[in-house]
Nucleic acid binder design. Structure first.
Length: 597
RNA sequence: GGUCCGGUAGCUCAGUGAAUAGAGCAACUGCCUUCUAAGCAGUAGGUCAUUGGUUUGAAUCCAAUCCGGAUCACCA
């Protein structure tokens, strides 16, 4: 239990005993005291002074006196400023907290909830390589999965591979037309990049053919519809659905190349999955939903045979759930997929990490499930995140302004290398150790940069800013960790620390020592908040502040040359606990920490 | 046009009912003979888009307006 929730009942009881006032825990506001005031925790008095018809100063004084009198081992002192009661806790309380928790490996972890949570993230198309937007998705999904694990949930990480459809056929057609049998091996290219090039080639050819038709006097709509490559792609989709072996073989071959490429990237950035779903296996599953919905009169059929749901009563539009030719649309597939997943896992919650451009789609999906009376309708949650934009605006693949994921990782890596060499602190590292360090720092910088902002908000990716390794960045925090490790290499803290001599009255804590302990104490509630809000940036901001506090402490107070042996043990404990919590927090963000940098 | 999201320091972002609105970057001043200066300390920088309302108290809640974005496909 954290300190704030220990104080609360004391205050509630004091209100009851002093004024016979019933106050619930939610009505009571208790927060960390702002640094410019004296105190550890602050109670806001305004909410009940009105009922008491007393001045806030008077009320604060009475509660403060009560708390000091009744809990003399807990509270040291208090002060009242305006309507705020600032409470200072005994140093012995903080000492004890540190003693009990500094080496606790499960600090902040919740006991098992028995709940099963599915996190779907990444979900790429197999026609082009991953870009910066995918990275935000992947880092976010991975991190939220880890955060939910720390909260005691059983978490299943999944991905839906969008491996079929017209867009896949486009790169296949282009490969047939232009490749002359070239392969990733023959060209030395990474498979996903190789296939992505043919997707681009298709679009180039398509544009060319459309403008040729326009020049011949066709109207735009017809030209777009009748361009030979587009016709060929559409025919290929039909052939694919019919199971034409030649098409299936090509499809398998090209998707295989893409998977080889994705595997390299996933491995490099630390993405992992419990189970992959392939759209080619699931795209037909939704059709039975359509029949079910028609039977229940939730869906209706139009004259041309297409099937719809009318959501105008819910303030939305009519939505297509099956094409007139009987083929599935996106919604059909998603209905089928959620059902399949429920059969597979009987999840308590299923989280979809999908961009906010699909807010409407996800809203409709949930609404349809509700109308169909599915038990899991309210267990699906759309973790919607904002697009990543460049200072010049939105990334557009057609205009070549997409930041490629592999390039980005390479770039961060080389910046890490460059800066490390410049500082020249790791001359004793072997070549492989150096490579690993660059990877840790470069990826750490990138992940932190993408995770430090609230997922809901769109973010601007400024290439210059992202390669900064100072301040509110991953490397700053990694550096703090490495500094601590440097201390701990020189001296291990005594096993029992201060607990070994309980007779001694510990000397009082310096301001920065206490500030650090209080920061450490926040960790469990930060995990909880991050989980509740589905928001890893809570952890990122927290761990940055923790590192900052440690650095201030580090500059002000020497650990190894502390004034007394007792202070030395205390500071060693602080160092151990800080470095652990930095490592855990960064771990929840998918970021490694180096022992030296 | 309907719906949804956003507008906070030059830039990127915290803060969602409480004290004098905070960080980082950029700018400027200091600090490496003692545990890693990828650090620390400090200066400067704000009409929290605008207007009105609710409240003891509003960047935060409500309403309207302005600006930006997303979405409303027999695309995914």
């Amino acid at each position: 239990m954290n300190t704030a929730s220990r104080i609360k009942p004391f205050v509630i009881k004091s209100l009851k005993e002093l004024y016979n006032l019933d106050c619930s825990a939610t009505e009571l506001t208790i927060s960390l005291t702002k640094p410019e005031f004296e105190g550890d925790y602050t109670i806001v008095l305004f909410s009940f002074v009105k009922q008491l018809k007393k001045s806030p100063e008077q009320t604060g004084k009475e509660i403060g006196d009560y708390l000091l009198k009744n809990h003399p081992h807990f509270f040291e002192s208090y002060n009242v400023i305006k309507g705020f009661l600032n409470l200072t806790l005994k140093d012995s309380y903080w000492n004890q907290f540190l003693n009990e928790n500094y080496s606790d490996k499960s600090f902040g972890l919740q006991s098992p909830t028995g709940k099963k949570v599915i996190v779907e993230y990444s979900s790429p198309n197999t026609n082009k390589p991953l870009h910066l937007g995918h990275l935000r998705n992947i880092f976010l999904g991975w991190s939220i999965a880890e955060i939910l694990k720390a909260q005691g949930n059983e978490v299943i990480k999944t991905s839906v591979v969008n491996d079929r459809g017209i867009h896949i056929c486009k790169s296949m057609i282009a490969w047939q037309l232009f490749a002359n049998g070239a392969t990733p091996e023959s060209t030395g290219m990474k498979g996903d990049h190789f296939v992505g090039e043919y997707y681009v080639k298709f679009n180039d050819e398509y544009k060319k053919q459309v403008s040729e038709l326009l020049a011949k006097g066709w109207n735009e709509k017809e030209a777009e519809k009748e361009a030979p490559v587009m016709k060929a792609a559409q025919q290929m989709l039909l052939d694919w659905e019919a199971g034409n072996p030649e098409v299936i073989n090509l499809w398998k071959k090209m998707n295989g190349w893409v998977y080889d490429g994705f595997d390299i990237t996933f491995k490099r950035i630390g993405a992992d999955f419990t189970k992959m779903y392939y759209e080619s296996n699931t795209y037909l599953l939704g059709k039975k939903f359509v029949e079910e919905g028609l039977k229940q009169n939730i869906f209706f059929k139009k004259e041309d045979g297409s099937v719809w749901i009318d959501l105008t009563g819910d303030g939305l539009n009519q939505k297509l759930v099956l094409r007139k030719d009987g083929t599935s649309v996106y919604m059909t597939q998603d209905l089928g997929l959620v059902d399949e997943r429920y059969r597979d896992y009987h999840f308590d919650q299923s989280i979809y990490v999908i961009g906010d451009e699909q807010n409407y789609h996800m809203k409709v999906l949930k609404l349809i499930l509700e109308k169909l009376g599915k038990p899991y309708a309210n267990r699906i949650f759309h973790l919607s995140y904002g697009m990543v934009e460049l200072p010049t605006g939105r990334m557009k693949s057609r205009e070549g302004t997409v930041v490629d994921a592999d390039d980005m990782v390479d770039e961060m890596n080389s910046v890490a290398k460059h800066k490390t060499e410049e500082l020249g602190k790791v001359k004793d590292f072997s070549e492989t150790e150096l490579e690993e360090l660059y990877d840790t720092i470069g990826l750490g910088a990138l992940k932190f940069f993408l995770l430090r902002v609230d997922p809901k908000k769109k973010m601007i990716f400024n290439p210059e800013e992202s390669v900064d390794f100072h301040g509110f960045t991953g490397p700053f925090i990694q550096y703090t960790y490495a500094r601590i490790q440097s201390i701990l290499r020189k001296e291990k803290p005594a096993e029992k620390g201060l607990a070994s001599k309980p007779e001694a009255e510990p000397s009082s804590l310096f301001k920065l020592e206490k500030q650090l302990i209080i920061a450490l104490e926040q960790y469990p509630s930060m995990i909880q908040q991050a989980g509740e809000e589905h928001n890893p940036s809570v952890i990122a901001i927290y761990v940055f502040n923790l590192a900052k506090t440690f650095n201030a402490f580090y500059t002000e107070h020497s650990v190894l040359n502390a004034e007394t042996d007792e202070k030395k043990q205390l500071r060693l404990q602080l160092s151990v606990m800080t470095s652990r919590i930095i490592a855990y927090s960064m771990g929840l963000l998918g970021i490694r920490v180096p022992d030296k940098m």
